[in-house]
């Protein structure tokens, strides 16, 4: 089992993985996926316009140091305008969450070995950032 972290009323929380809407996600890979289903992507996937119709998209990180999933997330949000839940899967690490959040991820499967309280405590280490991102169109050059 893993810990599920998502947002509830704009606050990050440790979700109940047994609840009805989270318990049984049937992930499909891109080849076996239909609109309306849950789509699980590898970090090197090339985007497909149809994917904006997924019920949820998960990106499977092979290692905490693999940043390809971050670019893929940005493309799903900015290029496909995918608006549904975007979930980090695989090698999700508490210290990468804040980068993932700013690339458009909205939920995470944190491996069981990680401490979810630590993850929640470092999910937003900064009040503001230098760059614009898919979750904040303003950068410091716009704000001043």
């Amino acid at each position: 089992m893993h810990h599920l972290i998502n947002k509830h009323n704009e606050e990050w929380q440790l979700a109940d993985t047994q609840s009805s809407d989270q318990a049984q996600i049937e992930w499909r890979d891109a080849e076996n996926w239909q609109p309306g289903q849950a789509l699980k992507l590898p970090v090197d996937a090339e985007i497909n316009a149809q994917w904006s119709q997924a019920s949820i998209i998960g990106i499977d990180f092979p290692a905490l140091t693999d940043g390809r999933g971050l670019s893929l997330a940005v493309l799903l949000r900015s290029r496909l305008h995918y608006a549904g839940d975007l979930r980090g899967l695989g090698a999700v690490h508490e210290d990468i969450l804040h980068f993932m959040v700013r690339c458009g991820f909205t939920s995470f499967e944190l491996p069981e070995s990680r401490d979810p309280e630590v993850a929640l405590s470092c999910i937003a280490p900064h009040k503001q950032y230098y760059q614009s991102s898919v979750v904040d169109p303003l950068n410091q050059f716009d704000r001043v």
Binding site: L64, G67, L70, S71, F99, C103, Y130, Q131, N139, F141
Partner: peptide
């Protein structure tokens, strides 16, 4: 300086 600000903790490019 503009590049410094843009590249500091860039969410997409921290894990190249």
């Amino acid at each position: 300086e503009i590049i410094r600000q843009w590249s500091t903790a860039h969410p997409e490019f921290e894990w190249l």
